[in-house]
Write a protein that binds this DNA or RNA. Sequence first.
DNA 1: ATAAATTAAATTGTATGCAATTTAAATCGA
DNA 2: TCGATTTAAATTGCATACAATTTAATTTAT
Lengths: 148, 148
Amino acid sequence: MREEDKLRLDNQTCFAVYACAKEITKLYQPVLKTLGLTYTQYIAMLALWERDGVSVKELGERLYLDSGTLTPLLKKLESQGLLTRVRDAADERQLLIKLTERGIALKARALEVPELAFCRTGVDVELLMSVRSQMNELMAALQPTMDR
Amino acid sequence: MREEDKLRLDNQTCFAVYACAKEITKLYQPVLKTLGLTYTQYIAMLALWERDGVSVKELGERLYLDSGTLTPLLKKLESQGLLTRVRDAADERQLLIKLTERGIALKARALEVPELAFCRTGVDVELLMSVRSQMNELMAALQPTMDR
DNA sequence: ATAAATTAAATTGTATGCAATTTAAATCGA
DNA sequence: TCGATTTAAATTGCATACAATTTAATTTAT
């Protein structure tokens, strides 16, 4: 690549992914508003609908978020009656997150979210699946660097 | 797709892009630290190295950021002596952003940033280019929805 | 057994990110 | 022309996001 092109914004994959992530979040926002959730709260609920009764640490590993982000977010979801935060009796360091009836029930209303978010866009499913596949590939390539 | 798979975290393209964007930012952070820049400050400088003397609005359109984010960020870069913020004499509503000598000079040191960020990862250039291409395609499909 | 090391959350501090509002300047329209 | 509308930044308020530190509980090592 020519030296003067190296820093062109249009040549930065990092910027393309960064900008795209923000646009997608904006796409979800109005749909999630009907559920009373922000985007980050939504992905936390997605993880919990798959498996709850987990610690903050385990949830954070799944979501790539730390306690600095999760602690206030989970307190908010608790105040909305969607989950409970209880210390693990077997290990008081850990806080176990359990969905309430209401938290479990919200899943039914969330089933339509992905379709509703993209329904007014011209994005076809093939592109979305291809993007997801490439993001996973990129993540896999980036993750090992954490250990070095 | 089976109903119970619709909300699986691993099936959400939105989450894949969201998580990937954060990991990439983390990859850049230590490299950018040597330049005294955060990631968002870096992309702002990238845009300005291509073209400066622009308004906050124009810069924001390029970066997909609004004045709520840019105003404090540009004030910080100004305080670091990298740019100046001057009202446009022809239209006092606009604020023109101009790089200083120091801001222009920083570009030379930034030339190695993209390579340094990825150099210790197993990511090959083909994947990066393919990802960028797909992100652009996805962005193009998402953007028209803003007008409706 | 117990001091040292480790671990999990919470807290603190800084930096976004954006919706909504405000302020000031420029443009529009009757 | 001059009040109404529009526009550009700045401001406000809320919600992340994460590094670094702190606190409390557990585990390790001697």
